[in-house]
Design a protein around this nucleic acid. Structure first.
Lengths: 217, 217
DNA sequence: TGATAATTTGACCGGTTGGTAAACATTACA
DNA sequence: TGTAATGTTTACCAACCGGTCAAATTATCA
């Protein structure tokens, strides 16, 4: 009998695991490049190297694929923020958070674009995730930053806007990659660009632009 | 005889001006919310309050509408950067550039999202604009910033990454509005949020986060 | 091995999409 | 006012879309 995936209670087959993996990988490729409405099931099937009905045997709808993809990716996407450590040295923590986020933008640009596409179009599929787990985590870390500021360890500032600023500056390199490349010219390959950006952002967030008496250590 | 818009050589009718205006306004509404592929001509026609064939009488294809919209909007979008003045006080210039960009994000979020959608999906329709007028303008202003840094008026930094940082932090409030609202909670209305963001960003770009001996003036 | 369950496929369906054809209505202007 | 150009609408089409179905194929394991 044909039992679609969602209704199965038995333990999962070897083939199931492999195919679902391939499908989600293909879905990430396609969704991140075209957004949800701009992607077609046929495209995903082609990238996954299987027929459309076969794909729909594992995920009954396009939405189900998208949902599964979001669920799987959101956790890892928030990892850098989770590592944010209240006990550490504040400036060093912020610096390494920036670097981790920048590494994610470099190593997982598709994941970044997947979320960017979704949020940009009003987050119709992930509203709950934004208001739930995301907000909770940000609230928690914002409290840490607020405490640092209160203790005079960093400048007084709105912690939420600080987090937004780190998100936007780092993810910019993944989400707006085409624009960055167009402006910088083709010459700048990946790794030099990455180091330039990292150096600039760490400096910006720590010292700002004003000329300071104490030059960078 | 029916002469489609592109082939017309006569001067434009009163009706032409009015209708094309309404269409581009509607197209901005729809394209900015759904992206190019996610938008339908019927949607745009409905928002514009006219029938689809009537709309297609003024713009023969969906692409033509999109192209016309981009052309019209790009210029105004780059205005804040054009105002960037080499003669002014560097820190004050950067500060007011940030504020102007933030005002644009507040007052013209649809324009911001239109570009964000386009760039995010690889800028298939505006590659030339990015590599041409956009790059030229950025190159010019980057040179100004570089001169400021060389003269010791601001900290030494990569001017391109500085511009990217200003773009990303400010446009974030338009492009990722849903996320910002989800994280900050519904309470924060538009104007308070705007002032908070402006205050934070001006402070960040000027002084950074490190505690400084001289508190903000 | 054989039978049962899991997987894969080609053909297909109804709805939507961008766009067209041609008849009809309105405007501009001599 | 007449008429030619401009503007608008109804009906329509072919391509594409997400998804179904039943038949065919393959894997599993008693």
């Amino acid at each position: 009998m044909v039992l679609p995936r969602a209704a199965r209670t038995q333990r999962r087959t070897r083939i199931q695991g492999e195919k679902e993996e391939r499908i989600l990988e293909a879905a990430l490729e396609v969704f991140s490049a075209n957004g949800f409405r701009g992607s077609t099931v046929d495209q995903i099937a082609e990238v996954a190297g299987m027929s459309k009905p076969n794909l729909l045997y594992y995920f009954r709808t396009k939405e189900a694929m998208h949902r599964a993809l979001i669920d799987r990716v959101l956790d890892t996407w928030l990892d850098p923020l989770r590592e944010f450590n209240a006990e550490g040295n504040p400036v060093a923590e912020i610096r390494s958070y920036i670097r981790r986020k920048l590494e994610m933008a470099r190593d997982y640009p598709r994941e970044s674009r997947l979320f960017a596409n979704e949020v940009l179009q009003g987050a119709p599929h992930i509203e709950d995730e934004l208001k739930g787990p995301l907000k909770s985590l940000v609230d928690e870390k914002a409290e840490v930053i607020r405490a640092w500021a209160k203790a005079g360890k960093i400048a007084k500032c709105d912690p939420y806007h600080l987090i937004f600023a780190i998100w936007s500056t780092t993810q910019h390199y993944a989400d707006f990659d085409v624009q960055v490349r167009a402006v910088l010219g083709q010459g700048n390959a990946g790794d030099g660009r990455f180091e330039d950006a990292a150096r600039f952002l760490e400096r910006l967030f720590v010292d700002g632009l004003q000329v300071s008496e104490q030059p960078a250590a």
